[in-house]
Design a protein around this nucleic acid. Structure first.
Length: 592
RNA sequence: GGGGUGGUAGUUAAGUCGGUUAUAACGCCGGCCUGUCACGCCGGAGGCCGCGGGUUCGAGUCCCGUCCACCCCGCCA
């Protein structure tokens, strides 16, 4: 090949500064923007490290200059030259803007056809096009930066967990199929025709077996596979920071994980609004925010108004309270001016358009004085009720108040959506702001569509000890679990639980779920058997690495922090997977 | 599984009430230009208007179907 040995590359394109002036360097990279002024040609040479301006002067080296005229965007070239200060011509936009390299040699290593979209930050190409040419998309500095953040985060995780006595262990991706939970991808076995592995939806059972094995503290940056519909923040395969700790209780896990997450954020020079992280009881989160993953970057807390509603003269609220609906209010401080009549009407319409169900409507009120309200329902309240409502919501003059009364689930959801929508409209958050919290003591069980009890987390989750007596009773739904979620800016970034290690409690939970002994043996027999041979108390956690990185990178979609993601229909636009296979292959696998 | 938005040049978009030659910017090709850094100036090429059907004298535009992408609900830890 007609270019210097790749070993002669002296540095990357982001390193040279004024102090390097006079040095002879060899740079290799991709041609970015070219500025051909006739007698002088400027080329932005780019590699992962950054961009350096290369100059070709006609009056100095006419042949070289002529060669440089043939350069096109994304050609890979090697140049030799001398670093010179740009003096008054320095560019402030580039980190290397104070210098340039006057080329003395140019070697075209490989030519590029015109690229389908420009290799630059802030590209306006469609996701579809970007995914089809993912290798070009990744070439954009922004994307390489995302991948760098990802790599550094993974390293920070390993460093932190290693320093805290964790051992990294790999567990199988090809596992036994177990119904329930997420849908599994199936892998046919050629050797055992007609039989299948499943791709692991998480290392859950293996990590508990590792505890039985005495691994004590395990972690893994593990790929998980779930055959569910993807979303912007969900992919059929994704990565978890998975860990499990022996001789641990909830407190042990929360402290260790909190330390890890703070370390991850600090490694990117980012910090949480409050640290140590606040802890919210699940019931408290639902009451104040209507969701189990509240965004705590802003206030706008909900207040349950059922007792007020039940006694007030406004029939809509009173009837709702009598009916057993949930009545919630929310105060938006100093927003009377912000919420024009038009905005309030739009918000009312927006509430009715929610896809969660037929929300009955939105009551809005503005506080004129400590005893005076205006708005959609102001006249329905007596003066005492008005004053009482203002006190209940802690409202001040010029606040706007919103009230929703509906079925509890709907009220929570509508008020949660409203809270986030208003925060967004009023721009209550900034991109560099992070608020994380723990949400603890989730309900142990919930009812599915068929009215059967199912685990909210998974069947090995330990019930809160004081609720054990409720198992199997009418009040089973009130049982809380030693389960916890980590939430950042309203995103659930991870969760875990204390596991059951006592066979009697485990049996009670299986009974409560209506899982027969045969079923248990079939699905989890090996785990239950393992638990007969001495099992330490243990607890664990799993965090969504992709979501964490996308938060750190300020990306809306985890697609932008995964090197080769799939579309929302699970298709790899670059390779076109999945594809059909031949009949011969199907036959060999015993599928025909 | 349900709902929504979109698909026009290589890319990103405009295209009115259905009307005769489908626009623009960037990119590409050719020319000029020695301090640009989104270089500038002049000229040029480039179209299965996602695909299939229908309505109409006439469809990028209206209707039906379909494919693809994205967003939301369901689902999913």
């Amino acid at each position: 090949m007609n270019f210097p040995s790749v070993r002669e590359r002296t540095c990357d394109c982001g390193t040279l500064r004024t102090g390097d002036a006079g040095k002879n360097v060899t740079l290799m990279g991709w041609v970015g923007r070219r500025r051909n002024l006739g007698g002088a040609i400027f080329v932005d040479l780019r590699d992962r490290g950054g961009v350096t301006q290369i100059t070709f002067m006609q009056d100095q080296l006419p042949e070289l200059h002529a060669q440089a005229e043939t350069l096109r965007a994304e050609d890979v070239i090697c140049i030799r030259g001398q670093v010179v200060s740009r003096g008054d011509n320095a560019s402030e936009r580039m980190s290397t803007g104070a210098i340039e390299v006057i080329a003395s040699e140019l070697h075209v290593i490989s030519r590029s056809e015109p690229v389908p979209f420009p290799i630059a930050d802030g590209t306006s190409a469609n996701v579809d096009t970007r995914l089809q040419y993912r290798y070009l998309d990744l070439r954009r500095p922004e994307m390489l930066r995302n991948l760098t953040v990802r790599a550094r985060t993974a390293r920070a995780v390993r460093d932190y967990l290693d320093a805290n006595g964790f051992m990294e262990v790999e567990t199988p991706y090809m596992v036994k199929y177990t119904p329930g939970g997420a849908r599994n991808f199936l892998v046919p076995s050629r050797i055992n025709k007609g039989q299948f592995y499943a791709l692991a939806e998480s290392p859950q059972i293996y990590k508990q077996l590792l505890m039985v094995a005495g691994a004590d503290r395990y972690f893994q940056i593990a790929r998980c596979f779930r055959d569910e519909d993807p979303r912007g923040d969900r992919q059929p395969e994704f990565t978890q920071i998975d860990l499990e700790i022996s001789f641990a209780d909830m407190e042990t896990v929360l402290r260790l994980v909190e330390g890890m997450v703070v370390a991850i954020w600090e490694q990117q020079d980012k910090y949480f609004q409050s640290s140590p992280l606040p802890r919210l009881e699940w019931s408290e989160a639902m009451e104040k925010y209507g969701t189990d993953k509240p965004d705590l970057r802003f206030g706008l807390e909900h207040v349950v108004l059922n007792d007020f509603a039940a006694a007030c003269g406004f029939t809509v609220l009173r009837d709702a309270a009598t009916r057993g609906d949930l009545v919630k209010g929310m105060r938006v401080p100093q927003s009377a001016e912000f919420f024009s009549r038009k905005k309030l009407d739009e918000l009312t319409e927006w509430v009715k358009r929610q896809e969660i169900g037929p929300a009955k409507g939105l009551v809005w009120l503005k506080v004129k004085s400590p005893t005076e309200l205006t708005g959609s329902a102001a006249k329905a309240f007596t003066p005492e009720e008005t004053a009482g409502l203002i006190v209940r919501l802690g409202a001040e003059v010029n606040d706007t108040l919103f009230i929703v009364a509906d079925e509890p689930k709907l009220t929570h959801k509508v008020m949660d959506n409203l809270r986030r929508e208003i925060a967004s409209q009023m721009k209550l958050t900034t991109p560099e702001q992070f608020a994380a919290e723990w949400v603890i003591h989730f309900p142990m069980f919930e009812k599915n569509d068929q009215g059967q009890w199912v685990s909210s987390h998974h069947p090995f989750t330990h019930p809160r000890p004081e609720d054990l007596d409720l198992l199997g009773t009418e009040r089973q739904g009130e049982v809380k679990a030693l389960a916890y979620d980590l939430v950042v800016n309203g995103n659930e970034v991870g969760g875990g639980s204390v596991r059951i290690f006592n066979p009697e409690i485990q049996q009670k939970v299986f009974d409560a779920l209506g899982i027969s002994r045969e079923d248990c043996k079939d699905k989890f027999g090996f785990l239950l058997e393992a638990f007969r041979y001495g099992v330490p108390p243990h607890a664990g956690f799993a965090a969504g690495l992709d979501r964490i990185i996308s938060l750190l990178c300020g990306q809306d979609s985890i697609r932008d922090v995964i090197a080769f993601p799939k579309t929302v229909t699970g298709v790899d636009r670059m390779t076109t997977a999945p594809t059909p296979v031949s009949r011969a292959q199907l036959t060999e696998l015993g599928l025909l």
